[in-house]
């Protein structure tokens, strides 16, 4: 197998993902969505369940257009703009944030709440409270938006409007931001490898 869905991973471990995995899946998923946007293939669709998120052997993370959602919602990426399931980038980000939170909350009771580190809670809060761009925004648009920097010159994202903003927030979580791509890919690669190891072990026992 070359990929596992986040749902399979959660069910196999029967426990929530850890925080670093949450950061990594957010970063890698937004990275692939952004790349799709640049190639003009973005079929923007809300993430409906963990089954829609696919973690690949090489550490890539993609949204599975047809994963679990009913065939009526599925349509080819080439479908026209008017098709009902298309939605804005911010809606995809919001739905991703919700699913990632649910993966962090997996197995907890309704009245229990997991204590998240403030930066991760802030990331999810930002993702689930996105702000509509003023129309100039489209995916892959590399506008030099005026950005805020903190005292040690680190770029601070205050509102999330694009996949790029999510990636910036995830990168800011690391000691060396420039290492974000390698680091988060390695985390997802390890998540896939460890899960496959467990999967094979359990299959052998069965």
């Amino acid at each position: 197998r070359n990929a596992l869905s986040l749902e399979e991973i959660l069910k196999l471990y029967n426990q929530p993902i850890n925080e670093e995995q949450a950061w990594a899946v957010c970063y890698q998923c937004c990275g692939s969505l952004r790349a799709q946007g640049r190639r003009g293939e973005s079929s923007k669709r809300r993430v409906e369940s963990p089954a829609d998120i696919r973690i690949w052997r090489d550490g890539a993370v993609t949204l599975d257009a047809g994963g679990g959602s009913s065939s009526s919602a599925r349509s080819s990426p080439r479908a026209g703009k008017s098709e009902h399931s298309r939605c804005r980038e911010t809606e995809v980000i919001e739905s991703l944030g919700i699913i990632i939170y649910k993966a962090l909350d997996y197995g907890l009771k309704e009245n229990e709440e997991r204590e998240l580190s403030p930066p991760l809670e802030q990331l999810i809060d930002h993702m689930t409270n996105t702000v509509e761009a003023d129309g100039s925004q489209d995916e892959g648009y590399e506008a030099l938006d005026e950005c805020v920097v903190d005292e040690n010159d680190k770029e601070v994202v205050e509102v999330v409007q694009s996949y790029r903003d999510v990636m910036k927030l995830c990168a800011a979580h690391l000691p060396t931001q420039s290492d974000a791509a390698n680091h988060y890919q390695a985390v997802c690669r390890a998540l896939f490898a460890e899960t496959m190891e467990l999967y094979t072990f359990l299959a052998r026992i069965k």
Partner: peptide, 23 residues
């Protein structure tokens, strides 16, 4: 159940879990 690797607290009305469950 083994010791979990994270802390669990009582769900709070103004917490992120409540906000997300309303979405």
């Amino acid at each position: 159940k083994g010791k979990s690797l994270y802390n669990i607290k009582q769900k709070h009305d103004s917490g992120i879990k409540a906000k997300i469950s309303m979405k």
